[in-house]
Nucleic acid binder design. Structure first.
Lengths: 167, 167
DNA sequence: AACAATTCGTTATGATGTTAGCATTCTGGT
DNA sequence: ACCAGAATGCTAACATCATAACGAATTGTT
């Protein structure tokens, strides 16, 4: 199956490739009760140590607004702690809990196993080469977003309240 | 910027690369009033000709439920026509309208221009090589999804009604 | 000190993503 | 003809996404 792939469509190919890989890892995460994005955050915090939301956006390739909701849910689930700095009340420190640290230990091994299985399937040189290409691509496109093009369609009526108290 | 990328995380790199590219194309689509997914559908229909939803799922890498909403909105916007087959009332034929056909003509040239600009930026061999790698990767992972692992967390109370009459 | 500009995390809104489940229609075996 | 089962498109519920905008806190300039 899988009818003709439009030639010359890099974003589509990247999407496809990612999807093909993720179907192999998603069941694993699901079995442990975390979503894909939650796992990204947990993993980033585990490797990087406690971090601020802004850093997590970079590390996890998540937008600020997405991260806000994800962190709120993760805090409710006891997967992370959040606390404001004393010297700069705007900033927040996000850290793992004992619960999530234990989660990392339980899941990492399985992830690695699947990863090696994947390398066996498609050949480890293929994986390595893909990696190199992507690095080059991303490096080449670093920064310098193109000039903008008008466009704007907002028109709502905000209204701040609520209170999820971070501390 | 862009702190350390977790080594050995192919899905993340694919995501990053795609994102870096899309920020260059999104403003373009937005300026013409279509979303990324709507454009995928329009493009697929233009290259493939009228198609059924199931085919579009493959062509556009969209899930059925996602596509349902997208098609509904596109129909409301006058971007597509939907009509059921007579010989098999389950199946639906999706086709472009005059409006969207004209859209393709207006947008395609700009897309191509940006694409070539991108090739100039990162080098066309890099793009070509990336392409080849992704093809190999996807081909290697074709079919054979891994064995499932329990997992289940649903518990709502559906209730069918509504009526979006397709024809 | 006063105050405009900036930074940070977050909310608001609408579109999309996944998973589960359903209704309608077809198909095949009896 | 009949009816179980498969196929197809869709709905329901909820998490996530991108973008714009906001409130609070901090900084730079005067």
């Amino acid at each position: 199956m899988d009818t003709a792939i439009t030639r010359r469509n890099l974003p589509m190919m990247l999407l496809r490739a990612r999807e093909r890989i993720m179907v192999r890892f998603r069941p694993l995460l699901k079995a442990h009760g975390v979503t894909e994005q939650q796992w990204r955050v947990v993993r980033a915090l585990h490797e990087h140590g406690a971090a601020e939301p802004r850093e997590l956006c970079d590390l996890c390739a998540l937008s600020g607004p997405s991260l806000a909701g994800i962190l709120a849910r993760m805090e409710a689930l006891g997967l992370i702690d959040r606390r404001r700095f004393d010297h700069d009340r705007r900033r927040v420190r996000v850290s793992l809990t004992r619960r999530s640290t234990s989660l990392v230990h339980r899941v990492s091994a399985e992830i690695e196993a699947r990863y090696r299985e994947l390398e066996r399937t498609v050949g480890s040189e293929t994986v390595a080469r893909t990696y190199a290409c992507l690095e080059a691509l991303v490096a080449g496109l670093d920064g310098s977003p193109p000039r903008s093009l008008d466009g704007h369609t907002a028109e709502f009526t905000p209204d701040a309240d609520a209170d999820r108290g971070i501390r």
